[in-house]
Amino acid sequence: MGSNNSLAVRCRSLVKSYGSGDAKVTALRGVDLDVREGELLMVVGPSGCGKTTLISIIGAILSQDSGECIVLGHDLQRMNETERATLRGGQIGFVFQMFNLLPSLSAVENVAIPLLINGTPQKMAESRAREAIEAVGLGSRPNVLPSELSGGQQQRVAIARALVHDPKLIVCDEPTSNLDHDTGVAVMDVLRGAGKKHDRALIVVTHDPRIFQFADRIAHMDDGKIIEVTNGASAL
């Protein structure tokens, strides 16, 4: 009960704009959002409403202009780039729409990268990567190149890569929008099954209503703001 109530992410009045002068685009206009430990929160909304911007800030990749964003107990605005890099490398996992796997590395080698970045020795990194690959159901093909895998399988490798260093927060930007419906549902199933943990928060950005069923809660966004947070199907 207790851990479910503590927050992995807390955003207040978050503002972010791109460019300046006439070209200025305000992507976030005061976002308030709480993400609890152990939950899978989806952020949904029309294209261009600021979803990617929001999770880039929460993922400590982008800095906000103003407002507060506390991630895993760290106030992002008070951190320099090196500290953010350390936070990302140690505690945050990423899943991208474009998969972003390295084409010349095998599945295991791709999955091992977050561990290698954190300084884990090669052997240990690869054996943990193998476990992560098994967890996403690709245990039989650890040594294939990404180009030999289907889109759904590639995204599962990417999920293994996001999980391998046991992060406390995983952010996913439209993980299913490059996949067909059935594959997307299967990938979400893997993400939820392998990724959900009592002390880990998952944030999944999507505009694909067919995967809403996997959400504990859903934050609805429009025009740079969270307009409402509802309970998802899986919370019922």
Binding site: L87, R88, G89, F94, I113, P114, N118
Partner: peptide
């Protein structure tokens, strides 16, 4: 990608 994953 490396940078996002925390590479210095």
């Amino acid at each position: 990608v490396f940078k996002a994953m925390g590479a210095s």
